[in-house]
Each structure stands twice: as structure tokens, then as C-alpha cells.
Amino acid sequence: MNVLIAGAGRLGTQIAQVLSAARNDVVLMDNDDDRLAALQGRVPARLVSGDACDPALLEHSGALTADLVVAATGDDEDNLVISLLAKRHFSVPRVAARVNDSDNAWLFDERWGVDVAVPAATPLISLIEEATGATDTVALLRLSKAGVEVFETVITERSRTKGRALGEVALPDGTVVATIVRDGQPTAPDPAERLRPGDELLLVSHTAAEHEIHAAFQ
């Protein structure tokens, strides 16, 4: 699948990493050159600098052959313009757009070319399922070469593992924590690290099912 992602912030970057791992051809766009420079070598996607609201740049970045466009900038106006261009000008089959301000949610529909409107607080896996139309997270994120699957879980105020050390959590067999994303930054999974509300954990496993991962932490 050819994927074009506008916005290389935390959300856009995570989407690019996961969809690239699932063997999709991903282009990640942003108008912040410093942000893109920091991502060089860290994200297995083609990085393009510029304003994604520019039709010429969208075409240069692959909009004509894109199967999916994700408008994931931090500006709702930009996301709407990108979505409209993707759908009306480039006839992209599927367009997903991030809704930053809930008051603007009513705008994010087919009139603006949006197939899937996703609130900013939506977990990464759910967003990708919605954006791609996939209902099977495991199938989408299977890493066929390594024979493992990728899962995400988020620690909340209600999670029973809140405040517990990572090493105290009994994981399903064949499962390891790949990283903890805290305040937008990935950190090494130190067993002594105490889990906090808002922590996003990415795990890999070759045996566990999604409900087992959820049960271990929630």
C-alpha cells in the first residue's frame, strides 16, 4: 500500500513507523526542516519537506498513486485542505484526518473529502485500523520476516499497573516490551521503570493475542 502522511509530529511519525514495519511504502511530509532532520535514519519512510497544502508538492510526493492519505498535522484547517485535495484533486481511495479541536469535528466528513475522522486522543492502533479500513490489528502489523506481532497499550489512571515497576508485570510467554513512549519520547524499557498514566507501551510477541496484552496491563 502507498501511504502519504502529512505531519511529522508524534502521531504522524508513529503511524509512519508502524505502517513501514508492515511493509507499506510510506512518505512522511512536514514543513519543519529541523523536525525532519531529527527523523533522518530513525523512520523507514521517505521524508519530504514542504507544505502539504500545496497541490504540486502533494503530487511530487506521490498523491497520484497513494492508496491512503493521512492528514495528521496539528492544524485542523490544514488537515481539511489536505483531505479535500487528496480526495477531489488526486482521487485518493481513502483519506483519514486528525481532529485536533473537537469543536471542529462536524467539518470532518465527505464534504471535505474525509473518509475517517480521528480524534487526537485516539490510540495509535485504533487510528491505523480506522485509517486503513483494517479490522484485524494483528494482520495489519504482522512482521512477517521476524515472525512477531506488534501491539500497543496505554496506561491510564484506572490501569492496575499504574505505579508498578515494569519488571513486576507478568507478560504473556514470548512477549517483550519494545519501548515506552512517554511525553512523546521513546525510552528504553528498564524493568525498574514505574509506569505512569499516559505511558504508551509498544510490545512484540510471537505467541500472545491482543486481549492477553490488554489483560496484563489493564
Rank of each mutant, 00 (worst) to 15 (best):
residue 116 V to R: 11
residue 31 N to G: 05
residue 177 V to D: 04
residue 52 A to N: 07
residue 121 A to F: 08
residue 46 R to G: 06
residue 53 C to F: 00
residue 98 R to Y: 01
residue 38 A to M: 06
residue 203 L to M: 02
residue 64 L to A: 09
residue 122 T to S: 11
residue 117 A to Y: 03
residue 137 T to F: 02
residue 130 E to W: 09
residue 36 L to G: 04
residue 28 L to K: 13
residue 133 G to L: 11
residue 91 S to G: 03
residue 174 G to F: 06
residue 55 P to Q: 12
residue 143 L to D: 08
residue 87 K to P: 00
residue 96 A to P: 03
residue 37 A to R: 14
residue 10 R to D: 12
residue 86 A to D: 00
residue 159 S to M: 11
residue 182 R to F: 08
residue 123 P to L: 11
residue 141 L to Q: 12
residue 153 T to M: 12
residue 110 E to V: 15
residue 202 L to T: 05
residue 151 F to A: 03
residue 143 L to P: 01
residue 89 H to T: 15
residue 11 L to A: 10
residue 41 G to R: 10
residue 205 S to V: 05
residue 171 L to T: 10
residue 88 R to S: 12
residue 172 P to F: 11
residue 100 N to D: 02
residue 142 R to M: 07
residue 13 T to C: 06
residue 161 T to L: 05
residue 108 F to S: 03
residue 212 E to C: 00
residue 85 L to C: 01
residue 85 L to K: 04
residue 23 R to M: 00
residue 54 D to V: 13
residue 31 N to A: 02
residue 140 L to F: 12
residue 78 D to Y: 07
residue 91 S to C: 04
residue 195 L to H: 02
residue 173 D to P: 01
residue 199 D to M: 09
residue 194 R to T: 15
residue 139 A to R: 14
residue 65 T to E: 12
residue 62 G to W: 06
residue 194 R to A: 14
residue 27 V to C: 10
residue 67 D to I: 11
residue 155 I to Q: 09
residue 178 A to H: 06
residue 66 A to N: 02
residue 212 E to K: 06
residue 150 V to Y: 06
residue 100 N to W: 02
residue 37 A to K: 15
residue 89 H to R: 15
residue 209 A to Q: 12
residue 36 L to P: 02
residue 125 I to F: 08
residue 114 V to S: 04
residue 91 S to D: 01
residue 20 S to C: 03
residue 177 V to F: 14
residue 20 S to T: 11
residue 21 A to P: 00
residue 115 D to I: 10
residue 153 T to S: 08
residue 159 S to D: 00
residue 13 T to W: 07
residue 68 L to H: 07
residue 163 G to C: 05
residue 52 A to C: 11
residue 119 P to R: 09
residue 166 L to Q: 04
residue 185 Q to G: 02
residue 86 A to L: 02
residue 102 S to F: 09
residue 87 K to S: 12
residue 113 G to T: 10
residue 208 A to S: 11
residue 129 E to F: 03
residue 90 F to P: 00
residue 60 H to S: 15
residue 178 A to L: 14
residue 192 A to K: 11
residue 104 N to F: 07
residue 1 M to W: 08
residue 7 G to E: 05
residue 9 G to C: 06
residue 21 A to R: 15
residue 118 V to K: 04
residue 157 E to P: 00
residue 26 V to P: 01
residue 32 D to N: 15
residue 176 V to C: 03
residue 33 D to A: 15
residue 152 E to A: 14
residue 31 N to Y: 02
residue 70 V to D: 02
residue 210 E to S: 04
residue 159 S to V: 07
residue 96 A to N: 02
residue 24 N to A: 10
residue 161 T to K: 03
residue 63 A to K: 13
residue 168 E to W: 00
residue 58 L to G: 07
residue 24 N to H: 14
residue 211 H to N: 14
residue 108 F to M: 08
residue 139 A to Q: 09
residue 107 L to Y: 11
residue 116 V to Q: 11
residue 172 P to A: 14
residue 135 T to H: 14
residue 167 G to R: 14
residue 20 S to P: 02
residue 215 A to F: 05
residue 39 L to W: 03
residue 11 L to S: 01
residue 111 R to H: 12
residue 84 L to N: 01
residue 108 F to H: 04
residue 91 S to A: 12
residue 58 L to D: 05
residue 139 A to V: 09
residue 113 G to M: 05
residue 127 L to A: 14
residue 57 L to W: 08
residue 168 E to L: 04
residue 72 A to Q: 06
residue 22 A to Y: 05
residue 124 L to V: 13
residue 17 Q to K: 15
residue 139 A to M: 04
residue 72 A to T: 03
